[in-house]
Amino acid sequence: MTLEELGYRPDLENYRKSHNLEPFMIGRVASEHRERYHVQSEQGMLECELLGNLRFSAESRSDLPAVGDWVAMSPYDEGKALIHAVLPRYSILERQAVGKFGEKQIIATNIDVGIIVLSVNRDFNINRVERYLTLCHASGIEPMIILTKTDLITQPEVQQLLDRIRTRIPEVPLLAVSNLSGQGIDDLKKHILKGKTYCLLGSSGVGKSSLINSLSGEVRMEIGEISEMIDRGKHVTTHRELIPMVNGGILIDNPGMREVGITDGQSGLESTFGTIYALAGQCKFTDCTHTSEVGCAVLEAVRNGELDEQALENFHKMERENARFTTSIREKHKKDKIMGKMFKEVKAHRKRKKF
């Protein structure tokens, strides 16, 4: 594959030249395994590790390569190379780190379109879709929604689910597909553009692995057996991976995410819940919380059936979560500043004692 087919852009080449990286090979991180990376290059797939200086100079995990990153590297053995630098990212898809409130976890980088996958059965959850939408909007990534496993229900039932999604989320591209029958797959392929990068987002068992097999034109992913009790496939994806598609696009698969915690995503909330923010401008009070106030245009819209009550509840929940995350970040920065000041004072005191 050429770099352009992998999604390489002119601005990246300009950066490479302006930062004296021309002597190095360029590749794209396809997968990561405990600080060892598989990097796709024009010479093929290389097994890479980080140059020591790059690892030790990193201030946080976000400074290290992630799936989707472009890296500059030098070969040192057959099929192996050292990563010297990470090129600038034009988008970073991230969520709140699981079990680490106030910290972020990178899902993937340099994404053009986030494909949000939900199935017609147990995993149908519009609230969760709005969470993924917020992550995409906050990262400047174009979202698309795919409803899978349509062969499990009748066509009228499929249409009812599509209508429910469109009522809550009217402006995002929405397609219904069946990997079993192939229905809708050709329409989906028309949305896949050469050189663009797409990231699959969704819970375990919604049909992402089957979708990858359909879009890549080969059986690349193992498909978990269907559990009769919960009517969904078992989770089989264990790590993020970059996969070429038949139409020339690049797909990044993700393990199913049980938790989709939003980070500092105020802009993402405003895009996802644009209707609520527009209505808020008509409220009687400028500091209206849209919970119980007289003259609240948002609550009036719910009473009139113009706004879905569940959408408002989900908005309140995510807004509170965003506020807590922002507060945690401020507190963390404050503590880091205090610790940094104490460290400097101790260092200065020890220096004075020497003399």
Results as ranks from 00 to 15, higher is better:
residue 166 R to S: 14
residue 234 K to D: 12
residue 136 C to K: 07
residue 142 E to D: 12
residue 137 H to E: 09
residue 139 S to W: 07
residue 195 G to T: 09
residue 196 K to F: 11
residue 161 L to W: 00
residue 199 C to Y: 02
residue 117 V to R: 02
residue 139 S to H: 07
residue 162 L to Q: 15
residue 213 N to P: 01
residue 211 L to F: 12
residue 128 R to E: 08
residue 202 G to E: 03
residue 230 I to F: 11
residue 226 I to S: 08
residue 158 V to D: 03
residue 175 L to E: 04
residue 141 I to E: 01
residue 215 L to H: 01
residue 195 G to Y: 13
residue 239 H to L: 09
residue 154 T to S: 15
residue 181 S to V: 07
residue 140 G to T: 05
residue 151 D to H: 12
residue 123 D to A: 09
residue 233 G to E: 01
residue 229 M to N: 14
residue 187 D to M: 14
residue 224 G to K: 04
residue 171 E to C: 11
residue 176 A to V: 03
residue 201 L to Q: 01
residue 213 N to Q: 02
residue 245 M to F: 12
residue 215 L to I: 03
residue 165 I to N: 01
residue 130 E to V: 03
residue 132 Y to H: 09
residue 180 L to S: 11
residue 185 I to C: 09
residue 244 P to G: 10
residue 185 I to N: 05
residue 189 K to F: 08
residue 161 L to P: 00
residue 222 E to D: 08
residue 144 M to H: 06
residue 155 Q to P: 05
residue 191 H to N: 08
residue 146 I to E: 01
residue 168 R to S: 14
residue 117 V to T: 13
residue 123 D to W: 06
residue 187 D to L: 15
residue 176 A to P: 01
residue 139 S to V: 05
residue 187 D to S: 15
residue 216 S to A: 15
residue 120 V to K: 04
residue 208 K to S: 01
residue 216 S to K: 07
residue 167 T to W: 13
residue 158 V to G: 01
residue 172 V to G: 04
residue 130 E to T: 13
residue 127 N to D: 09
residue 132 Y to S: 07
residue 229 M to K: 15
residue 160 Q to R: 11
residue 148 T to A: 11
residue 175 L to Y: 08
residue 128 R to G: 09
residue 146 I to S: 02
residue 248 G to Q: 08
residue 239 H to E: 12
residue 210 S to L: 05
residue 209 S to M: 04
residue 140 G to M: 06
residue 192 I to G: 00
residue 226 I to R: 13
residue 164 R to D: 14
residue 173 P to E: 08
residue 164 R to P: 00
residue 248 G to T: 08
residue 227 S to L: 14
residue 159 Q to F: 02
residue 168 R to P: 00
residue 231 D to F: 09
residue 137 H to M: 02
residue 160 Q to M: 14
residue 228 E to F: 06
residue 126 I to R: 08
residue 157 E to Y: 01
residue 150 T to W: 04
residue 140 G to L: 03
residue 212 I to Y: 11
residue 152 L to H: 10
residue 253 D to V: 06
residue 238 T to V: 10
residue 180 L to G: 00
residue 186 D to C: 03
residue 193 L to H: 14
residue 228 E to C: 01
residue 199 C to H: 03
residue 115 I to R: 00
residue 196 K to N: 09
residue 151 D to C: 15
residue 125 N to P: 07
residue 165 I to T: 12
residue 173 P to H: 07
residue 129 V to C: 11
residue 137 H to I: 00
residue 188 L to N: 02
residue 208 K to T: 01
residue 124 F to W: 09
residue 127 N to H: 13
residue 135 L to Y: 09
residue 162 L to I: 04
residue 240 R to H: 13
residue 184 G to A: 08
residue 184 G to R: 10
residue 143 P to Q: 06
residue 236 V to L: 12
residue 223 I to F: 10
residue 176 A to M: 00
residue 234 K to P: 01
residue 211 L to E: 01
residue 222 E to R: 10
residue 179 N to K: 04
residue 170 P to K: 06
residue 249 G to E: 06
residue 237 T to P: 07
residue 171 E to D: 15
residue 134 T to A: 06
residue 233 G to R: 07
residue 253 D to G: 10
residue 234 K to T: 14
residue 174 L to H: 04
residue 172 V to P: 02
residue 154 T to L: 10
residue 217 G to E: 13
residue 203 S to R: 11
residue 152 L to M: 15
residue 184 G to E: 03
